[in-house]
Each structure stands twice: as structure tokens, then as C-alpha cells.
Amino acid sequence: MMPEKFPPVKVKDPSSGKEVELSPIKVWTLAPKSRKGVKIGLFKSPETGKFFRAKVPENYP
């Protein structure tokens, strides 16, 4: 089974401090009970190789 590909998104890389366009590895919704939440993506820094989480747009697939 192939992992599904997500379209790239502009995020700020916290380890290098630069804004880069990356495709998330995984996307999920983070929400408290009975309230609207935010979508979070898991990204890997191209420079340092560290993983980080960042908010993705609400209408993201």
C-alpha cells in the first residue's frame, strides 16, 4: 500500500527559521470536545532532518 501524497504547503521551518514549501507526511485535526479545531501537519525539515508540526490551511484535503 502506497502512502497518499499531500499537496505542498508553505510553512516556517523552526529549526532553520526559513519559510519553505513542503508536503506533509501526515495530517490530522486537533480539536477540543464539541468545538471547531485546527488541522495540523507533520513535516520533515529538508536541512536538518528534524520533524516538526505546523498548522495547515482549513480547506486542506
Score class of each variant (00 low, 15 high):
residue 1 M to Y: 15
residue 2 M to E: 11
residue 2 M to H: 09
residue 3 P to M: 07
residue 3 P to W: 07
residue 3 P to G: 15
residue 4 E to W: 12
residue 4 E to H: 12
residue 4 E to R: 14
residue 5 K to N: 00
residue 5 K to H: 06
residue 6 F to G: 08
residue 6 F to H: 14
residue 6 F to T: 14
residue 7 P to N: 08
residue 8 P to C: 06
residue 8 P to V: 07
residue 9 V to Y: 00
residue 9 V to E: 11
residue 12 K to E: 14
residue 12 K to A: 07
residue 13 D to E: 14
residue 14 P to D: 02
residue 14 P to Q: 05
residue 15 S to T: 06
residue 16 S to Y: 05
residue 17 G to R: 04
residue 17 G to S: 09
residue 19 E to L: 09
residue 19 E to C: 13
residue 19 E to G: 03
residue 19 E to W: 10
residue 20 V to M: 13
residue 20 V to F: 05
residue 20 V to N: 06
residue 22 L to V: 11
residue 22 L to K: 03
residue 22 L to H: 00
residue 23 S to N: 04
residue 24 P to V: 03
residue 24 P to H: 08
residue 24 P to F: 05
residue 25 I to A: 14
residue 25 I to R: 05
residue 25 I to M: 10
residue 27 V to K: 02
residue 27 V to P: 12
residue 28 W to G: 08
residue 28 W to T: 11
residue 30 L to C: 12
residue 30 L to D: 14
residue 30 L to N: 09
residue 31 A to G: 07
residue 31 A to C: 01
residue 32 P to F: 08
residue 33 K to G: 02
residue 34 S to N: 11
residue 34 S to W: 00
residue 36 K to C: 03
residue 36 K to N: 04
residue 37 G to V: 04
residue 37 G to Y: 07
residue 37 G to D: 08
residue 37 G to H: 00
residue 38 V to Y: 06
residue 38 V to W: 07
residue 39 K to E: 02
residue 41 G to Q: 03
residue 41 G to F: 01
residue 42 L to H: 06
residue 42 L to F: 01
residue 42 L to Q: 05
residue 43 F to P: 04
residue 43 F to W: 05
residue 43 F to H: 06
residue 43 F to Q: 09
residue 44 K to C: 02
residue 44 K to E: 15
residue 45 S to F: 04
residue 45 S to P: 06
residue 46 P to L: 01
residue 46 P to E: 03
residue 46 P to W: 05
residue 46 P to K: 00
residue 47 E to A: 12
residue 47 E to F: 12
residue 49 G to S: 14
residue 50 K to R: 14
residue 50 K to Q: 15
residue 51 F to P: 00
residue 51 F to Y: 07
residue 52 F to N: 04
residue 52 F to W: 01
residue 53 R to N: 04
residue 54 A to D: 09
residue 54 A to F: 00
residue 55 K to P: 02
residue 55 K to C: 00
residue 57 P to Y: 00
residue 57 P to A: 08
residue 58 E to R: 06
residue 58 E to Y: 01
residue 58 E to A: 15
residue 59 N to Q: 06
residue 59 N to P: 03
residue 59 N to E: 07
residue 61 P to N: 14
residue 61 P to A: 03
residue 61 P to L: 06
